[in-house]
Nucleic acid binder design. Structure first.
Length: 430
RNA sequence: GGGGAGAUAGCCAAGCGGCCAACGGCAACAGACUGUAAAUCUGUCCUCAUACGAGUUCGAAGGUUCGAAUCCUUCUCUCCCCA
C-alpha cells in the first residue's frame, strides 16, 4: 500500500465539493487514515444522480487513503428526515424499506472498493443497532443528553414550526445523532459527511458524542448542487435520472450527462469524475477552444456511464447517439442491419403496430395517436406536426395529412419516430 | 372570543354581470439560430375535435338573472390585526 499522496480536503476544495467543516477536521485527516461515513436515505430502491454527489465523496475519500463507510438508513428511513421537506413525510412500510436498502446497497458496491485492506469500504445498516433499542432506554440514555432548546434551534426544525411537524420527525436528529455516537463508540468512526442540509443532524451527533463521553468527532458537508439556470439537478422532463438501468436506460443516462450545459459541465467534471486537477484544467482549456466538440460533456458521460453501467453499455449509448443525433441521413438508417438497429434502439421506447393497419396506408396522425402512444390525442399530434416537430425515419413531416404505408419501413419492419429533438420511439410492425 | 382580508388554470397574478376558456408573467413543450450548449426570437400551452365547434373550469354547495369567475346565502380552508 502506497502512502496516500492526495489530501482529502484539498481534493474537495478544488472540486468545489466542500461547503463547511468543523474546526480540526483537516488536521485529523492529515494525521492518518480516518474512518468516515455518509448516510443514505432508503426512500427509493435506486439511487438517483442526485445521490451521486455523496457517493463520489466516499469514493474520493477512499482514493485519499481513508476508509469509507456507507450507512443505509433502515432505522432513520422509518422516521423521516424533516430537513429540506416542507411537509410531514409519508412513512414507508418495512418491506419496501428493506427492498430499497438492498437495491441501494448493490449500487454502492459498484463505486467503492470492498477488498480487504486499510481503505476497505463497508456498508452498515442502522437498523441493526436500533431494532433492539427500546423507547424508554433511548429517551433515558440518549434523549437525556440533548435539550429540546438545542433541537429546536436547528433550521430543519425551525422552518417547520409554522406548518407543523410530528414528534416523530422532530426526533429524527436524535436518531441520526445516535448513529454517529454508535459508530464512533463501536467502530471508531470519527467523521460524518453529507449534504449541507445535513449539517444540523450531523452536529447533533458530534454534540451527543461530546456530552455522553466527552469524545471528539468531526463533520464535513458538501454544497447542494444546482444547475446554472437555478433549476434542480438530476431531473429532466421525463423525471428523475436513476442509476438503476431498469428505471433509466444506460442510453438515457448517458444522454443526461451529454446534455449538460457548458457551464454545468465544468462543475460536473470536478464532482463526478476522478480526473486529476491537471487533467480537468487541460480538458477545460481544450473544450473552450472548440466548445462545439463538447469534450467536457463527453468525458463526463463516458466516465460516469462506465462506472455506473459498463463499458459495453457506454459503447452502445455512443453508437445510438451517433445515429440519432449525427448527420446520419435516412439512407444511413436504412443501411443498418436488424441486429445493430435493435441494439442501438434498446434504450428508446418501443411500440407495436400490426402490419395490416399499414398495408393500405394510414394517416400519420392516426398512426401516432390512436394506434400508438406517441401522442395522447390526435389534436396534439396534429399541433406538433404543424409546428414541424415530428420526423419519421429522420425525415421531417411537412404535411399534416401525410399517409404512411409499408414502403418506408426500415428492414421492412421498423419505423423510427422522432418527437421534438430528443424523443425517439421505435415502432415495430408485425 | 372580536374585527378584517383572501381562495382564479402547474405556479404567480389580473378580471368584479354579457366583448371570459379567462390580460400578463414564470415554468413546460415545439420551431428558427447553434454545438443534442447558453442566450435570443417565434409558436403552442383546460380537454376532445382537421376545422365549424363541443365539453368541463375560477375553494364547495345552493340561489338571483335571459346570462355569473363576477351579485346573494350557507359551508370549508388560509392569512392578518385586536383580545
Amino acid at each position: 500500500m502506497s502512502i496516500p499522496t492526495l489530501n482529502f480536503i484539498e481534493e474537495l476544495k478544488w472540486r468545489g465539493m466542500l461547503q463547511d467543516m468543523m474546526p480540526g477536521t483537516d488536521e485529523l485527516l492529515k494525521k492518518g487514515p480516518v474512518k468516515g461515513y455518509i448516510g443514505f436515505d432508503p426512500t427509493s430502491d435506486s439511487l438517483g444522480v442526485g445521490n451521486l454527489v455523496q457517493v463520489m465523496i466516499l469514493l474520493h475519500f477512499q482514493r485519499c487513503g481513508h476508509q469509507p463507510v456507507a450507512l443505509v438508513g433502515g432505522a432513520t428511513g422509518m422516521v423521516g428526515d424533516p430537513s429540506g421537506k416542507s411537509a410531514e413525510r409519508n412513512l414507508l412500510s418495512e418491506d419496501i424499506l428493506n427492498a430499497n436498502l438492498q437495491g441501494q446497497k448493490k449500487q454502492l458496491e459498484k463505486f467503492l472498493d470492498f477488498t480487504a485492506g486499510p481503505t476497505q469500504a463497508s456498508i452498515v445498516n442502522n437498523y441493526d443497532w436500533f431494532k433492539n433499542f427500546n423507547f424508554l432506554d433511548f429517551i433515558r440514555d440518549v434523549g437525556k443528553h440533548i435539550t429540546v432548546n438545542y433541537m429546536l434551534a436547528k433550521d430543519s426544525v425551525k422552518s417547520r414550526l409554522e406548518s407543523g411537524l410530528s414528534f416523530t420527525e422532530f426526533s429524527y436528529q436524535l436518531v441520526q445523532g445516535y448513529d454517529f455516537y454508535y459508530l464512533w463508540k463501536h467502530q471508531g468512526l470519527k467523521l460524518q459527511m453529507g449534504g449541507s442540509d445535513q449539517w444540523g443532524n450531523i452536529t447533533t451527533g458530534t454534540e451527543l458524542i461530546r456530552r455522553m463521553e466527552g469524545g471528539e468527532a468531526f463533520a464535513l458537508t458538501t454544497p447542494l448542487i444546482k444547475k446554472a439556470d437555478g433549476t434542480k439537478f438530476g431531473k429532466t422532463e421525463s423525471g428523475n435520472i436513476w442509476l438503476d438501468p431498469k428505471k433509466t436506460s444506460p442510453y438515457k443516462f448517458f444522454q443526461f450527462w451529454l446534455n449538460s450545459s457548458d457551464e454545468d459541465s465544468k462543475n460536473y467534471i470536478r464532482i463526478f469524475t476522478t480526473k486529476s486537477q491537471e487533467e480537468v484544467l487541460a480538458l477545460e482549456a481544450e473544450h473552450d477552444l472548440a466548445p462545439n466538440q463538447r469534450l467536457l460533456q463527453k468525458a463526463i458521460a463516458k466516465e460516469v456511464t462506465i462506472r455506473v453501467h459498463s463499458e459495453s453499455d457506454y459503447n452502445a449509448a455512443v453508437e445510438a447517439s451517433e445515429i440519432l443525433f449525427g448527420n446520419a441521413p435516412t439512407e444511413a438508417l436504412s443501411k443498418l442491419d436488424e441486429e445493430t438497429l435493435l441494439n442501438v434502439f434498446e434504450g428508446v421506447p418501443q411500440m407495436q403496430i400490426s402490419r395490416d393497419e399499414l398495408t393500405s396506408g394510414i394517416s400519420v396522425i392516426e398512426l401516432l395517436s390512436d394506434k400508438t402512444n406517441v401522442f395522447p390525442s390526435r389534436g396534439e399530434a396534429r399541433k406538433l406536426i404543424q409546428g414541424g416537430g415530428v420526423s419519421i425515419n429522420k425525415q421531417k413531416l411537412t404535411d399534416v395529412n401525410a399517409v404512411q404505408n409499408t414502403n418506408g419501413l426500415l428492414q421492412n419492419k421498423y419505423l423510427l419516430v422522432q418527437k421534438g429533438k430528443k424523443n425517439y420511439y421505435l415502432l415495430i410492425v408485425n
